[in-house]
Design a binder for these strands. Sequence first.
DNA 1: CTGACTGCAAATAGTTTGCATGACG
DNA 2: CGTCATGCAAACTATTTGCAGTCAG
Lengths: 146, 146
Amino acid sequence: MITERQITSILKKRGYKLTPQRKAILKVITQSYDHLTPYNIYERVHQESPDVGLVTVYRTLDLLTKLGLICEVHAEGNCHSYLVKRPSEQHHHHLLCSQCGTVVDFVDCGVEELQERLCQKTGFEIHDHLLEFVGCCRNCQKTTPS
Amino acid sequence: MITERQITSILKKRGYKLTPQRKAILKVITQSYDHLTPYNIYERVHQESPDVGLVTVYRTLDLLTKLGLICEVHAEGNCHSYLVKRPSEQHHHHLLCSQCGTVVDFVDCGVEELQERLCQKTGFEIHDHLLEFVGCCRNCQKTTPS
DNA sequence: CTGACTGCAAATAGTTTGCATGACG
DNA sequence: CGTCATGCAAACTATTTGCAGTCAG
């Protein structure tokens, strides 16, 4: 997980200002292990620092996306949730808990051979892929016995 | 690919009415091999039958989703594109061309062992997954040499 | 005939933009 | 101090809902 401190230093290096609003937003998203919608983030930030507007959350998310520090999560019909990237991972995927929203990363996705096979079969040149698992984490299994 | 005829018969069986608007929408989505947004569908339908409103497209898409006849495509930042399901496939995935939108299905995704491994490691009970590949199809490779 | 379906307009939700003010560096 | 960032309000886009009229079965 990238820390608040690391993001802070990246922002400074690139010449972006470190405003209290940005600090508050960074704090929330770096301290959460869930995927959060812009509005979720706004709510949490707003509780602590009521002087932060939703618009600023959107603009900060844009900025962090541009810098490649956060990534999107697609599952559960919710296409605009965000998550802080873990450090120095170029390529990783997510495993989400549909109850509590916890996200676990994994790196070794092993789709290379599948990709190769598809290229052969279809003639496509494959650039990218999207892979996510959805399930129920250990904690929520206890709370919600299926 | 499920045909218009097949969907038609499913609708009848379930007691839904077969209106000209629904026919027009079905025609468009069954004849397209791309993923289309609700508005894309509206445009195409509207050309042929100007008496079909966007609202009806939304309602028809809801209906088809409820009946499990179409599925969502997530790629390219576009989270609300739809696609007719191929027949009797419970489990399949998509390979999309980012140039022209063509979608190719594949069935054998081989993520079972990865899933098993993740369950072991994380204690999750995994219900579902999302897998898509994005690339450039054979045709578009010719047109747009990279 | 009658309930399901439709179109329209209005409501709602999510996101972006313009502009005047404020504060980081 | 100058410039970038912010908040507000308004604009926009996407989607949903209420309602009265219409039509498939």
